[in-house]
């Protein structure tokens, strides 16, 4: 049943600035420091912001002063996405959004952006970091995060999910299905597949 070479899997290009934008907002799920070369194509007065989720409680207003006044650090991706939704609801045409991080994070950002009226020419996604996957259980709809192995126990129903190379941009997740549904207990050797 496992089939490889599935073409719904997204591909990503290296992070590049869109000079057509009037304002630029970078969001990252880690302590991202953009390569200065990325900004070479921009006029120096173009506003650039950098939002980062640091997975750390001791950040917030005044907790992490940075040279760039337009930088904001968040405690979690959840907090960052929440602030991003608030921000995008109030944005005007001309913003360019750049998401940098794990696939699950960058597609969460894409979903939020689309839902708030941005089209695919207004945001860019850059996958960096590990290849760990968010897995959607097709049987119970529960999400299992940070999956590094070919087979994982579903966080919802406990099924031994085989992580299929089939990706839903809407769910920002790969499909998992019960690998031993036909012959209970017949599970292939568990290996690291998404380091």
């Amino acid at each position: 049943m496992p089939v490889s070479g599935i073409v719904s899997r997204p591909t990503y290009e290296a992070l590049a600035i869109d000079p057509a934008g009037r304002r630029h907002l970078f969001v990252a799920d880690h302590a991202f420091e953009p390569d200065p070369g990325v900004f070479a194509a921009l006029p120096s007065e173009a506003p650039v912001e950098l939002w980062r989720a640091l997975a750390e409680a001791r950040v917030g207003s005044g907790a992490g002063p940075r040279a760039n006044a337009l930088a904001r650090d968040f405690r979690s991706t959840t907090q960052l996405l929440d602030a991003l939704a608030y921000r995008l609801e109030r944005e005007r045409v001309g913003l360019r959004l750049y998401a940098v991080g794990l696939e699950s994070f960058v597609w969460d950002v894409a979903r939020l952006a689309r839902g708030l009226g941005m089209d695919s020419s207004e945001y860019r996604l850059s996958h960096v970091g590990s290849n760990r996957r968010r897995v959607y259980c097709v049987h119970c709809r529960a999400i299992t995060e940070n999956v590094a192995t070919n087979v994982v126990a579903c966080s919802g129903c406990g099924a031994n999910l085989f992580v299929r190379d089939h990706f839903s941009r809407r769910l920002a997740a790969f499909m998992g299905f019960q690998i031993d549904a036909e012959a209970p207990g017949e599970v292939p050797p568990i290996e690291e597949a998404f380091p």
Binding site: I6, V7, S8, R9, Y136, V138, D165, H166, F167, S168, R169, R170, L171, M175
Partner: peptide
């Protein structure tokens, strides 16, 4: 799982 996908994505 597939709703919202493009033609090539859902036939992936």
């Amino acid at each position: 799982f597939n709703i919202g996908m493009t033609f090539h994505e859902w036939h992936g």
